[in-house]
Design a protein around this nucleic acid. Sequence first.
DNA 1: TTGGAATGTCAACAAGACTGACATAAAATT
DNA 2: AATTTTATGTCAGTCTTGTTGACATTCCAA
Lengths: 167, 167
Amino acid sequence: MADGRTGHGESLLYLTDEQLRQGIEAMFFAYRGFTADPDRILRDMAYGRAHHRAVHFINRAPGTTVNNLLNILGVTKQSLNRVLRTLIEDGLVESHVGKADKRERHLYLTEDGAALEQKLSDAQRARIRAAFRDAGPEAVAGFRTVLEAMMDSELRGAYTRLKESET
Amino acid sequence: MADGRTGHGESLLYLTDEQLRQGIEAMFFAYRGFTADPDRILRDMAYGRAHHRAVHFINRAPGTTVNNLLNILGVTKQSLNRVLRTLIEDGLVESHVGKADKRERHLYLTEDGAALEQKLSDAQRARIRAAFRDAGPEAVAGFRTVLEAMMDSELRGAYTRLKESET
DNA sequence: TTGGAATGTCAACAAGACTGACATAAAATT
DNA sequence: AATTTTATGTCAGTCTTGTTGACATTCCAA
């Protein structure tokens, strides 16, 4: 199989070390582009990528608890807490004590928080939209398939749950 | 077009805000998986992701200059320098003053450096290989197409140059 | 030859991740 | 009722990795 094909005509070229390396480098460079636009916006404010992530997922799942967010973001509570504290102080996020379980804090975006989220999303979506449009529907489907296969299993669970919570 | 299709049967569903958001979240979660395995290895040593990146691209283009690496990695020279210094001190990277231009430093991996690179690559490749295998060749092609479209133009240049320098 | 541009180094600082220890309140269990 | 577990928050300290600023060396061109 020196030509990278099996006897059944199925191409395995995409599994050579060279192809894998190209995939790895593509992922590296693309992720830079992926975060570049929101990063630029955030740099001018006193915020960073961590704030973007928090705001994104609070917008995504309003009323989510701190613990929930912790699992999704994969950081320590101390780290998240620093970010949440500044967002709450600046009036972008509201924290409400849980009704059923008073230990929990449920997180919501304020109007200002929603505005920031929108601004950041718009910037990021514009780039993704352009990339998706250029690449076409089949490429996008493949893109999603590979990304899902690349996730850790617990994260894939979190991702799927979010994905299926479309309203 | 409420059904997300044009009159020409071309699906535009992949460009709805909802689809874009799913793509964004897929990218976020997948990147965590992408870096998880090498990160685990690096945590046990005194190194981080920045060291991995440096070692990867020095291995990729032996004899590259600091400035070259700077452009690829997209960090400040001061930041890269700290990483390179530790790698050189630890005997993983060698820095040779340029013959033609003595201002330049040409970077090479030592035997130990190559061994580390191999170890990290193997871990990362294993995951990508599994993901590629599960997703199949068409999905992988789509994945690459979308990632390339997502890069900043200058980075796409760097990526393409690397890609085409296969020996 | 002199002044600017390119290259790289050192120092100091900031963001954002981490661990560990501890406090509080509420829920769950015994 | 007492105890343990869970959810959250906070303080202190560390690490990685980014940043700017200042500076030395080298090359090249006016």
